[in-house]
């Protein structure tokens, strides 16, 4: 059965101007997302992995049109939404939600949790006061919180509980897609699993699609169906989760996997130590963006951007050496 595509990205770019010098002239552009083509399937969890600054958050925000792509096309359920003005976007808004690393960064510290959760219902629905309260009580229960949490202030919650509130807020309008931007990264490992379990059960119950951003390949392996590896705004490798971990093909994927410290003392490891630092996205290397750190770089890598080619069922890679 062919899978239904929920979101389609065609050569999507998001460039930001960088202002430099005392005249604040735009002298360069940060290529935060630089030509990404991707299908996001209905009801799947796609993990998006890469080092900080590689454009994960930007692509997440662009995907739900919190940002307008600089170039390229974005389709939601077959409709081209790349250029839609705010009013025409409104019916799509409630279908696409986002969860952040720190959900409380965007909440008013003096507003109680219940009323805060009711706000999106006020904007997007015509529910009565009583109905809204009832809906919020239902949401609190769904995410594993108690009715008395309705009247609490943000600071009274632990990190894990805060993330549950962020999830409740995202669920309020019955979305079909949730962009999860590092939702467990700020939590202690000991409580991460609670939140991951919740995300999984909500997905089953509501048929949700997740775009799950993380820098933790361990977490991604446990939650995701497919994994996308990014580097400096570009896609390096995409594969079903098992395939990616068993048969990583891109040298960057191999290096990332080998860099993760394993909980096995005394194990001799063949670690691929990458040279140097991540180059600046304002001035990315020509050709393959990874060539400055790649242990296998060849002459062609310095000149030509590798093609995003399919090397197996659902397995794509951008590398001249593969």
């Amino acid at each position: 059965m062919p899978e239904k595509v929920l979101v389609k990205l065609e050569n999507v770019k998001k460039h930001y101007p960088v202002r430099r010098g005392w005249l604040q002239r735009t002298s360069a552009r940060v290529k935060a997302v630089d030509g990404v083509s991707l299908d996001l399937y209905d009801r799947e969890t796609l993990g998006v992995v890469g080092e900080s600054g590689c454009g994960k958050s930007t692509i997440g925000r662009t995907l739900i049109r919190l940002e307008k792509p600089t170039e390229g096309k974005l389709y939601f359920n077959g409709t081209d939404i790349s250029e839609l003005p705010a009013r025409a976007m409104k019916p799509f808004r409630s279908k696409m939600q986002m969860i952040f690393q720190d959900p409380f960064a965007s909440l008013n510290p003096r507003q109680r949790v219940g009323p805060a959760l009711e706000e999106p219902l006020t904007i997007h629905t015509s529910l009565s006061k009583g109905e809204k309260r009832e809906r919020v009580m239902g949401l609190l229960e769904e995410v594993g919180l108690r009715p008395d949490h309705y009247d609490r202030l943000p600071h009274e919650f632990s990190g894990g509980q805060r993330q549950r509130i962020g999830i409740a807020r995202a669920l309020a309008l019955n979305p079909s897609l949730i962009v999860c931007d590092e939702p467990v990264s700020a939590l202690d490992v000991s409580v991460q699993a609670q939140v991951l379990k919740l995300l999984r059960s909500l997905q089953e119950k509501h048929g949700l699609t997740y775009f799950f951003i993380s820098h933790d390949l361990g977490v991604v392996r446990h939650l995701c169906d497919r994994v996308l590896i990014m580097y400096l705004g570009q896609t390096m490798e995409l594969a079903p989760v098992r395939e990616l971990y068993k048969n990583p093909v891109h040298p960057y994927t191999e290096a990332l996997l080998s860099a993760i410290p394993r909980p096995v003392p005394g194990r001799k490891r063949e670690r691929i130590l990458l040279r140097g630092d991540l180059p600046s996205p304002a001035d990315p290397p020509k050709g393959c963006p990874f060539h400055t750190r790649c242990p296998e770089a060849m002459e062609i890598c310095k000149e030509t951007r590798p093609e995003w080619k399919e090397i197996g069922p659902g397995h794509r890679v951008a590398c001249h050496a593969r």
Partner: peptide
């Protein structure tokens, strides 16, 4: 602590918080 750590090398491993 050991059981709550996701295992990158084994996807049959059940995470326990």
């Amino acid at each position: 602590l050991l059981r709550s750590m996701p295992n990158v090398d084994d996807d049959t491993y059940t995470l326990e918080a």
